[in-house]
């Protein structure tokens, strides 16, 4: 049995410690907001926070996550009110929506470490996340919007 702490809740999972965290989260724990996109750390759809870092859960073994704080898209905020989530909604960023769990989890690390990101900072943070629908321009705009909201204290952030 391995204990995984996901979104501040402990789960006892009986899995191969080499199983990628992605499948443990989706198939065993049953939180399906984290997506499978490529399985080889190329697309970022599976991004979760492991002790606050935006790791690719498709190549991160369960054994690495044991004893650490895992946050998935379901735990990014309590009421879908992280500044990024609000901005994503206000700019109608998603199309099919499949990649956006990962996009948001990546953007959240950027915004935490750099509350006023430039376009270049956004490039440096977000080029690991693929969006096949091509919502990139809106992602960029939404990150700027979220940064402004955070700065102006419009949300609890």
């Amino acid at each position: 049995m391995i204990t995984l702490n996901v979104n501040n809740k402990n789960y006892e999972v009986d899995v191969d410690p080499n199983m990628p965290l992605l499948w443990a989260i989706r198939d065993v724990i049953g939180l399906t907001g984290t997506k499978y996109g490529c399985g080889v750390a190329q697309c970022g759809a599976c991004t979760v926070h492991l002790d606050s870092e935006a790791v690719r859960s498709c190549v991160t073994r369960v054994s690495r996550a044991e004893g650490q704080k895992i946050t998935t898209i379901e735990g990014l905020s309590e009421n879908n009110d992280h500044p990024l989530q609000i901005a994503w909604n206000e700019l109608s960023v998603p199309q099919c929506g499949y990649c956006h769990s990962g996009q948001l989890m990546s953007a959240a690390v950027l915004l935490r470490e750099n509350p006023n990101p430039t376009d270049e900072d956004i490039d440096d943070a977000m080029a690991g996340n693929i969006c096949r629908c091509g919502t990139y321009l809106r992602i960029r705009k939404a990150i700027h919007l979220a940064a402004n909201m955070q700065k102006n204290g419009n949300t609890k952030g």
């Binding site: 997506k35 879908n80 989530q85 909604n89 206000e90 960023v93």
Partner: peptide, 27 residues
């Protein structure tokens, strides 16, 4: 007007095919 599905697609609740779970389901 803003998309109604954006909310579901920003908090992990939008149900895609791969998210479908049926009791007793195997992979």
């Amino acid at each position: 007007l803003l998309r109604k599905d954006a909310a579901l697609k920003t908090n992990g609740t939008a149900g895609f095919g791969l998210d479908k779970r049926v009791p007793g389901m195997l992979f």
